[in-house]
Nucleic acid binder design. Structure first.
Lengths: 229, 229
DNA sequence: ACCTGAACACCGTTCAAGT
DNA sequence: ACCTGAACACCGTTCAAGT
């Protein structure tokens, strides 16, 4: 109590924060990110978030506004954290394929991103870098103008669509009846073909095969549809 | 009151239905179908349904069990009502393309069906008819076994994926910034290319071009990836 | 600056009770 | 057989009030 003899040192703690905040905006964002990754966008609830952080629901609102604003922020962080793709390999086909593969990998890493970005009107902005990279390779292959733009968009639709189908497959329950069961139940069916369809889909291989077929045809083949214009 | 003189005729109304039911199972299903078409699956609420039919919420439960069972029934009706596809045209490429176009048209007519069917594990069953039709054409083109199955799956993934991307586009708000704005803002960009990308996507044409490129390559082209196995 | 509970308008679902 | 209201456990959000 009688400490006047000792010159008081500058207090270690600054004067302002009398008590430290129970949660931070950062903590809310991190918890929300985890919830979305584990349970999907629908699994993100303000009340779950509050319970997980040991705080009243209304505190969450003070830090991030509301659920929509919270999702906006998550989307912004995700998009900002996306790696920029660079083509690799030699020859236009190989280089376009490397971009397609990279785009698929990035999108698979953030399964909810496509929908969230699209709802917020950010789709063109998000895909601009990959679109530019693809356009450069397509131009190097000798395509120009409308035809180049169409080839780029065809690859983009193909890759994004493939990832969306994969996402459906990933989060689907056991399908019943199985394609295998259906094909083996066919009485008059080609048994070789039935056997081939009974094999589960190897999606990596299917992506490679289909994308290569598409890209080769777009860059090298004749295009009757193009000539119509 | 004194009617004993007159032999009572058989009453017109049967004795059982003292009062007619307020709603029928059929009416619930129809109202639910309309709600889903107008507001999406998330817009289907048991309470909205009840309000629309002028009945207590719990009546809905008596007729259809619960929300999940109601959706099950809707899915079953939708799948049952799907037209079966038939190939048209001459030559394998044209016939496969006609199947792809038909599949896209059917799927676009029921935008929520893919997700609902998949959640219920009915995806293989739903796509079996189109898969069989595609397989027949691919076999006619000379492919067999694994290679035929892979070609069929490539087309299926492409078409379904394309429709999923289109669905995103359809239900997206105004995108901002636009692809047009982004490309025109590029200082060092190829102005011809920028102009091409500034044009809005013609999705019918894009579907035709990309699908034809894919199918041609799958049925006619050389496939390095196939040789690896 | 940061947190709280109360309150409101929505959900899906169950239950006991009516006719 | 068919419908009802009450009740429960969930939502997102706003507000006035605390410190």
């Amino acid at each position: 109590m009688t400490q006047e003899a000792v010159k008081p040192v500058r207090p270690v703690r600054p004067a302002r924060p009398v008590r430290s905040p129970a949660v931070s905006r950062r903590a809310v964002l991190d918890a929300a990110t985890r919830l979305v990754e584990e349970q999907g966008v629908a699994g993100l609830s303000m009340r779950k978030l509050a319970a997980e952080l040991g705080v009243a629901v209304t505190s969450i609102y003070w830090h991030v506004g509301n659920r929509e604003a919270l999702l906006d922020e998550l989307v912004q962080e995700m998009v900002h954290g996306l790696e920029t793709l660079a083509a690799a390999g030699s020859g236009p086909v190989a280089r376009v394929l490397s971009l397609a593969t990279g785009l698929r990998r990035v999108l698979r890493g953030h399964p909810h991103l496509i929908g969230l970005v699209n709802e917020r009107g950010l789709t063109p902005a998000m895909f601009l870098p990959s679109q530019r990279a693809l356009a450069a390779e397509v131009a190097a292959a000798g395509l120009g103008g409308t035809r180049a733009a169409e080839a780029v968009r065809a690859v983009q639709y193909h890759v994004i669509g493939f990832v969306l189908v994969e996402r459906h497959t990933d989060r689907s329950p056991e399908q019943h009846p199985t394609a295998e069961e259906l094909w083996l139940a066919e009485p008059a069916a080609d048994t070789v073909l039935a056997g081939a369809f009974a094999t589960p889909v190897d999606s990596d291989r299917l992506f490679t095969v289909s994308t290569e077929a598409l890209v080769r045809s777009l860059l090298e083949g004749p295009f009757p549809a193009f000539e119509l214009t």
